[in-house]
């Protein structure tokens, strides 16, 4: 007579089938989930030339695509400066207002000063600064 809690052949087979089913499901599901995860593109730092930057007047701005990031380049008296154009509130692209000397977001009335700091509106953080380099008569912006 076997003890009440001792494993039976049927119980062991039930466990074996359940375990094999779980392992098979996981083996099928894990590649499926990884397949759905977006593949990284580009990566690392990216450098883009700002076309026609030299002919920009003081106070003028230009938005360029650097990888997946939109970057706004402004020519100021002190030289070129560049920021991520993505508003830190909800991702709309800011525009440079020459008269106000501010970056304005068209979506929720946010304003950032010429150094990217929040002046008014709901953004929780300043605009992210992007590196600008002058090489000869060309202007490059690069993201880390």
């Amino acid at each position: 007579m076997s003890k009440p809690n001792s494993p039976t052949r049927r119980g062991f087979l039930d466990f074996l089938i359940a375990a094999c089913s779980a392992i098979t499901t996981a083996a099928l599901a894990i590649p499926g989930v990884l397949y759905l995860w977006p593949a990284a593109k580009g990566g690392g730092s990216q450098k883009v030339e700002v076309e026609g930057a030299k002919s920009m007047a003081i106070g003028q701005s230009k938005t360029v695509q650097v990888g997946s990031l939109a970057v706004i380049v402004v020519k100021q008296r002190s030289g070129f400066c560049a920021f991520s154009a993505v508003c830190t509130h909800l991702g709309c692209l800011v525009k440079w207002d020459t008269g106000k000397k501010q970056f304005l977001c068209p979506c929720h009335a946010a304003a950032f000063d010429e150094k990217g700091k929040v002046v008014s509106g709901p953004p929780p953080a300043p605009l992210v600064e992007v590196s600008v380099k002058e090489v000869g008569d060309k202007i490059f912006v690069s993201t880390a």
């Binding site: 360029v64 695509q65 939109a70 154009a85 709309c92 692209l93 525009k95 977001c105 068209p106 979506c107």
Partner: peptide, 9 residues
């Protein structure tokens, strides 16, 4: 246009 957000979305 990924480089221009229209007003008041």
């Amino acid at each position: 246009d990924a480089l221009s957000t229209p007003a008041h979305i």
